[in-house]
Amino acid sequence: MPKQVDHDERRAVIAEATWRLIAERGIDAATMREISAAIGMANGALKYYYPSKNAIVRTAFTHVFEATNARIRARLGDATGLAGLRIFCREVMPIEGVTRLEARIVLPFWQRALGDAELGAVYVEAMAIWRAQIREFLRTGRAEGSVTTDADDDVLVEQLLAMLNGVQTLALLDAEAVTADLQRRMIDAFLHGLG
């Protein structure tokens, strides 16, 4: 009798191995052969799940995005407004080991998304989710009275996304200048300016 394969579980194992491989050794190391070796799967079997390099990159980015969102949800608890927004930002910024590794996935994904409409659409969809979350934090912050700035929420959302996306590049390429402490102070200064 043929062995039953849980394809969702196998995809999750492949995604985990792929993002780790890219984060630790770079996008060029994430070949079908290396991913297959990392999980003990035949190269041909891997192609069933991910037929191209872009499919691998998309999987790694999606895995990181979903893991970030899961951490945000877990750490938010009852936090709303500026307190919730601070938690959100700190889970996105490359401050700690895992978030620094995740940023190493984001950078090569951006490069590929520039030339690939399908990957570009994945990024646009991800940022739409984060825009909605940030807007909700701002809305509740205004209702609670912790957000009092006259600045338009659409502008604030884009400023914050620009800072969060930009700090991933800065912190990875110049870690001595853009330390975890500086990243925390950047966010705190931005959020302080909203009150």
Rank of each mutant, 00 (worst) to 15 (best):
S36Q: 08
R10K: 13
V106T: 10
F65K: 05
I105F: 07
L119W: 07
Q159S: 14
D6R: 01
A15Y: 09
T18W: 00
R184C: 11
V13T: 15
A37D: 11
F190P: 05
R100N: 09
H63A: 09
D181S: 03
M127N: 13
A45F: 06
A117C: 01
P94W: 02
A12E: 04
L173V: 10
I105Q: 04
I22H: 01
A113S: 14
N43H: 13
A180R: 11
G115R: 12
V5N: 05
A23C: 00
A117T: 13
L107M: 09
Q4C: 07
A117S: 14
R100A: 00
D78S: 12
V98C: 04
A113R: 08
G145L: 08
R185S: 10
L114M: 15
F137I: 09
N54L: 01
A79Y: 10
L76W: 10
A45T: 12
A171R: 09
N165E: 14
R10T: 14
M186Y: 08
A143G: 10
E91R: 02
Y49L: 02
A162R: 09
L138T: 03
H7G: 07
R86N: 07
R112Y: 09
G40W: 02
R104A: 10
P108D: 01
L107T: 00
A30M: 03
H192Y: 13
S146N: 13
Y48I: 15
I22F: 06
D78V: 03
R73I: 07
E34V: 00
A70C: 01
L46W: 05
A103S: 12
F137P: 01
I187E: 00
L119C: 03
I27H: 06
V122W: 08
T62F: 05
V122F: 10
R25P: 02
A23W: 00
S36A: 15
V147C: 05
G44V: 08
G97S: 04
V178F: 15
V13E: 15
F137G: 05
D8W: 04
D116L: 04
S36N: 08
A17G: 11
M32A: 13
R139V: 14
R58A: 12
V178A: 12
I105G: 07
T68S: 10
L182D: 10
F65C: 03
V98T: 12
A143Y: 04
R184K: 14
S36F: 03
G145W: 09
I39A: 05
Y123M: 15
L82Q: 08
I87A: 06
A30I: 10
A12M: 07
G84K: 06
A175W: 07
G40P: 04
D152F: 02
F190E: 06
A29K: 00
A132G: 13
L156M: 09
Y49H: 06
D154L: 01
D116C: 11
L119A: 10
R185F: 08
V57R: 01
A67E: 15
